[in-house]
Design a protein around this nucleic acid. Structure first.
Ligand code: SF4
Ligand code: SF4
Lengths: 137, 137
DNA sequence: TCTAATGACTACCTTAATGTAGTCATTGAA
DNA sequence: TTCAATGACTACATTAAGGTAGTCATTAGA
């Protein structure tokens, strides 16, 4: 039970940018070094974040990455979505074996509740929440 | 965010046994057919459940599997533990990058809360809970 | 204009989880 | 006492996630 590697990296990347000045521009090599994320893997993830409109990139000399919007507009959930983490509600504890609503098992509602609270958490946490407390790396 | 395949199978196997009579004995071939779990993969999982003292097995002709204890004594959490699903609390959202308690990030407590409620759910649900409602397959 | 510094793209490699094959060990029934 | 029906064990095959290599495209500055 955890987020996959790519999602974890993505959150750490964005958190890093937020904490070190969201107005600044960051290049792939530096981020890679600072966060110990393999360079090529990092750029792959960055492309996903760009595609998801969370990060802006500029190519060429003096290029780099920066945040695409206001911090308060970006939710953790958006990041996870950008890297295709599956958080879908309709997924059952036992995989995708969806049952009809009439004969649900004991775990159904309990799991849904937990799933919901997790989703709420990701939906309700925005990037500016990171500034105050800080993430250790 | 979901249980891995092996865990899902394990729960479905035990649920199947519970629903079809926990006093009866079941052989691998039948379970495999009924639940569409690859035969060899199934026997591998069964061995884990036997090792975890959830299932008893008897070899030889007329052999098979049956539940090792009273239904009320077996928790979903026990099944997950038997197949080595990692549910450990100390694991952070961002992997194993544990921070010191002084500078925890905004997700820390929220994640812990969710994690806890999930663990509680698994700890507090026993096999006899399955009987009443039934799991669709 | 040329070039070094950058990100984007494509294709491949590695690893861990999932799944399969073959054989051995045990046992009850004929 | 055989032997067919069973589970256990070992080793291999497949797949998907994670990670790497090489090259192309873009751009600011000399
Ligand atoms: S009833 Fe149980 S098995 Fe069926 S979809 Fe809900 S959680 Fe999954
Ligand atoms: S503070 Fe945040 S990053 Fe650090 S261990 Fe807790 S959840 Fe993980």
């Amino acid at each position: 039970m955890k987020l996959n590697n790519t999602s974890q990296y993505a959150i750490r990347i964005v958190a890093y940018i937020v904490q070190n000045g969201s107005k600044n521009k960051y290049n792939a090599k530096d981020i890679s070094k600072k966060l110990s994320i393999p360079y090529k893997y990092l750029t792959k993830i960055m492309s996903l974040l760009v595609e998801g409109n969370i990060i802006l990139s500029s190519r060429g000399r003096e290029g780099g990455y920066n945040i695409a919007k206001e911090l308060s507009e970006i939710k953790i959930g958006d990041i996870l979505e950008a890297v295709k983490e599956s958080l879908h509600q309709e997924e059952c504890v036992l995989g995708n074996h969806l049952c009809n609503k009439m004969e649900k098992c004991i775990l159904h509602d309990k799991w849904l509740f937990t799933k919901n609270s997790m989703q709420e958490m990701f939906k309700n946490t925005t990037l500016d929440d990171f500034i105050a407390k800080g993430v250790q790396r």
